[in-house]
Computed example of a mutant assay.
Amino acid sequence: MSRRRSMETIQKSTYVTISELVRLTGVRYSTLKYYTEEGLLPFYQEDTRMTRRYRRVFALERIEEIRSLKEEGFSIREIKEKLIGT
């Protein structure tokens, strides 16, 4: 079992896990997993442990973009088209 990193360490990290994104954003794990599966939240897979890592700054910006577009009334499909062109 891995040790939980401090918030200070997470905020300085280049890459974070999905659980750390939950702590940083307050967005539910299942929601972030859904965004990942839909291609809205790209990740890098660590070979040794098969852990998904997200670029912290990009992920935080992308999550905020998604939140903002959802508040404007866009559907996930429309958000996906707007952000990644699919």
Rank of each mutant, 00 (worst) to 15 (best):
8 E>D: 13
68 S>H: 11
5 R>W: 07
22 V>Y: 08
66 I>L: 07
5 R>S: 13
16 V>L: 02
5 R>Y: 14
36 T>H: 10
37 E>S: 03
19 S>G: 12
32 L>D: 03
76 I>H: 03
63 I>V: 14
71 E>Y: 09
77 R>K: 13
44 Y>F: 09
28 R>G: 06
72 E>G: 01
73 G>V: 00
9 T>M: 13
44 Y>E: 15
9 T>Y: 11
52 R>W: 02
7 M>A: 09
28 R>D: 14
11 Q>A: 13
26 G>H: 01
12 K>E: 13
33 K>T: 05
10 I>C: 03
32 L>N: 01
77 R>P: 04
38 E>F: 00
7 M>T: 08
25 T>F: 11
19 S>Y: 11
28 R>N: 14
22 V>P: 09
66 I>D: 05
7 M>E: 12
56 R>T: 01
41 L>S: 00
21 L>G: 00
42 P>C: 04
65 E>M: 11
69 L>S: 09
71 E>H: 10
12 K>G: 07
12 K>V: 04
66 I>P: 04
71 E>F: 06
56 R>D: 02
62 R>L: 14
38 E>K: 12
76 I>N: 04
35 Y>H: 03
46 E>N: 05
30 S>W: 07
30 S>Y: 11
8 E>F: 03
55 R>K: 15
12 K>L: 14
7 M>Y: 09
59 A>D: 07
44 Y>C: 06
66 I>G: 05
35 Y>N: 03
38 E>G: 00
34 Y>F: 05
5 R>V: 02
49 R>P: 04
13 S>L: 05
23 R>S: 10
54 Y>G: 13
36 T>A: 13
20 E>D: 01
59 A>N: 05
53 R>G: 06
65 E>A: 07
60 L>Q: 00
18 I>F: 04
6 S>Q: 07
76 I>A: 04
39 G>Y: 02
45 Q>N: 04
7 M>F: 10
62 R>E: 05
23 R>G: 11
55 R>W: 12
55 R>V: 13
64 E>M: 08
28 R>M: 11
23 R>L: 15
70 K>M: 15
18 I>Q: 10
21 L>I: 02
64 E>H: 11
25 T>W: 11
64 E>A: 15
40 L>G: 01
62 R>M: 08
15 Y>S: 04
39 G>N: 03
36 T>M: 07
37 E>F: 01
47 D>W: 03
43 F>C: 14
72 E>K: 11
23 R>N: 07
77 R>V: 12
28 R>Q: 15
73 G>N: 01
60 L>A: 01
20 E>T: 00
41 L>F: 01
58 F>Q: 10
29 Y>V: 09
